[in-house]
Amino acid sequence: MNIFRFLGDMSHILSFLLLLHKIVGGKSAAGISLRTAEMYAIVFCTRYIDLLWNFASLYNYLLKLLFIGASLTIVYFMRYGPSQKATYNADEDAFPVQYLIAPCAVLGVLINQDHSSPFEMVWAFSIYLEAVAILPQLFLLQKQGEVENLTSHYVFALGAYRALYLLNWMFRFMTEPDYQQRIVWLSGLVQTALYCDFFYHYYQSKKGGLNKSVKLP
């Protein structure tokens, strides 16, 4: 464990707390993509299936449970919460996720760390899917133009988590002799790159004060 990875995990937890605060606390799903929320639930339920046999550390174990629980809770409230359904904009949340899930599934089968292990295929699928899972959310924000304050912090924290993981991988690559995770590194790079435009606009709007809403052209 290094500081970059720890901060990355804390940023990831923060993104969940912000989203849960908005959807469960604020009873509003305005500006939130259910498609992204569902893809994240798939990412965690597939990647953390090793909860059943892998106890790398208590820290990992607890956070895996937290991420699966939080992502399923968010999907549940967005699908069945009366006031969440009323504020969720299904027409605008229209990114064709089948064009993301299918290629990731093919890639997961073709490119993974052990072609004889179904778990490795599923695990690689979840890594690839996470890289593109934010697209429906960014697509929705782009369509709406204006990003509500809490939503902008949620997206920022979610983007920052993987950016911090990139620093964590660089640190581990420099300090651990034979450490390499090409699948995760490349996917994490793509994932963070997708946020660059949002990061830019987030920075532009927040430097005038944290409560200004983010405007996307």
Partner: peptide, 10 residues
Amino acid sequence: PEEEEEKDEL
């Protein structure tokens, strides 16, 4: 295929 790395990250 790459040798299997332990999955010690989230």
